[in-house]
Design a protein around this nucleic acid. Structure first.
Lengths: 192, 192
DNA sequence: CACCAGTTAGTGAACACTAACAAAGATAAT
DNA sequence: ATTATCTTTGTTAGTGTTCACTAACTGGTG
C-alpha cells in the first residue's frame, strides 16, 4: 500500500505530533526530521492533508487486527475483558498513538479526517455494544441498565485512563492500571 | 476583573473556537467578528496568549459556583447525582464551552494553558473522590471497588457523553441523556 | 492638554507548496 | 556491449498567503 518512504513519512509525522502536538507537524519539521528537503515530501504525497489521512489509515491498520481477534469466547465478560485489555495493549505499545487520537479535536477543521476518526470510534462502540447485548440476554451482564449506558461507561473510563496516562507522560503502566480498571468494571456490570 | 471590551473579546474568542476549532481563532477573525480593527485588540490584551488565558479563567469562573454548591446533602448518592447533573447543566447552557474544553489537546504547546486546565480537572476529580470515599465509609456506595476506579468511570462516561453531544452538533438533549446516565451510574455504584 | 480607544498601513516570520533543474538507475534501440 | 532516453527521487531557490504584532497617527472625552 504505502512505499517505504511513505511509511517513513507517516511514522515521522506521528512522532512529531506525539512530541509537541499537531502544530509541530509542519512540512519543514517533517522534512528536517527525516533528513530530506521539503519538496521531496511532495514526491510521495500530494499535500499535507494526504499525509494526515495516511496517519489515520496507519492507525486503523494497527487497530483493526484487535477487532478481528475478538468475540471468540462463549463468556461475554471475558469478551469484554479482552476488548478492553487489547485496546490498552495496542496503545501501550504505540504510545505516540494516544496523543494523535486526542488530537482529534485538532482535526476539527478537516471534515474528512473527523469522519474517518468517528467511523473508527463508532465501529469500536458497536462491537462492544453487541457483546454487551449478548451478555445481557445470557444473563451474564446486568440487564437493568441500558447497553448504551454501559458502552458509555466502559469506553468513557477507558478513554479517560488513556488521557491521564498520556497527560502524565506515561508515568504509570497503562496495562497494569488498565487491568485494575477492567476488573472493577467487570465487578460492576456482572449479574450477581 | 475584565472590562466590558475584554469580556466581549473573550466571549467572541470562545464562539470562534466553538464554531470551527482553535485554528479559527486568529486575531483577524476575532477583530472582524467584533467589528473592530486588529490592533484594537492589543489595547485590551498584551498578546494572543493572554486572550486564551482569559478564556480559561472565564471558564473557571462559570464552573466554580457549581463546585461550591455541592456537598450539602447527607446522602452521598444524592451528592454524586448533583455533581453530575450540575456539570451537564452548565455545559448545556454554555454549549460553546464543550468544544473549548475538548480543544485542550490544542493547548498542548502552551504549558501554562495545559496547567490551568489540568488544575481545573484535578479539582473536580478530587471533589468527586471525596464524596465517593465518604459514601463508601457510610456504606451507601460499594466499597469493593476503589474510589479511583469509580472516579474514572463516572468522569470518563460524563466526558464521553459531552464529546458525543458536541460531535453530534448537540442533536440530543444533554440534560435528559445526562439524567439517564446518572441514574444508571447510581444503580451500578450503590450498595445492594 | 493628556489620555484612552480606536484607525491605516505595514513588518518580519512561518506556512504550504511550486518551478526548474540534476543525478542515478531502469529500459530499450542500435 | 554501448548508447540514448525515460522515470524516479532528490535538490536549490523562491512563490504568495497568512500569521501575530507594531509604528504612527487621530478623534473624542474629562
Amino acid at each position: 500500500m504505502f512505499s517505504e518512504r511513505q511509511q517513513q513519512i507517516v511514522e515521522t509525522a506521528i512522532k512529531l505530533i506525539a512530541d509537541k502536538g499537531i502544530q509541530n507537524l509542519t512540512t519543514k519539521n517533517l522534512a528536517n526530521e527525516i533528513g530530506i528537503s521539503e519538496p521531496a515530501l511532495y514526491r510521495h504525497f500530494d499535500n499535507k492533508l494526504e499525509i494526515l489521512k495516511a496517519v489515520i489509515i496507519n492507525f486503523q491498520n494497527k487497530m483493526q487486527p484487535a477487532f478481528n481477534k475478538l468475540k471468540r469466547s462463549a463468556n461475554s465478560l471475558n469478551n469484554i475483558e479482552r476488548f478492553i485489555l487489547e485496546h490498552f495493549k495496542i496503545i501501550n505499545h504505540n504510545p505516540d498513538f494516544a496523543k494523535v487520537i486526542f488530537s482529534e479535536a485538532n482535526f476539527q477543521n478537516e471534515e474528512i479526517l473527523i469522519l474517518k476518526m468517528n467511523n473508527m470510534m463508532d465501529q469500536s462502540h458497536k462491537i462492544l455494544d453487541s457483546i454487551i447485548q449478548t451478555g445481557q440476554k445470557k444473563e451474564e451482564i446486568r440487564a437493568d441498565i441500558t447497553s448504551l449506558s454501559l458502552v458509555r461507561i466502559i469506553i468513557g473510563s477507558m478513554r479517560l485512563l488513556v488521557t491521564q496516562w498520556s497527560m502524565s507522560s506515561m508515568i504509570f503502566n497503562l496495562e497494569t492500571e488498565g487491568k485494575q480498571l477492567c476488573n472493577d468494571i467487570r465487578k460492576l456490570i456482572a449479574t450477581e
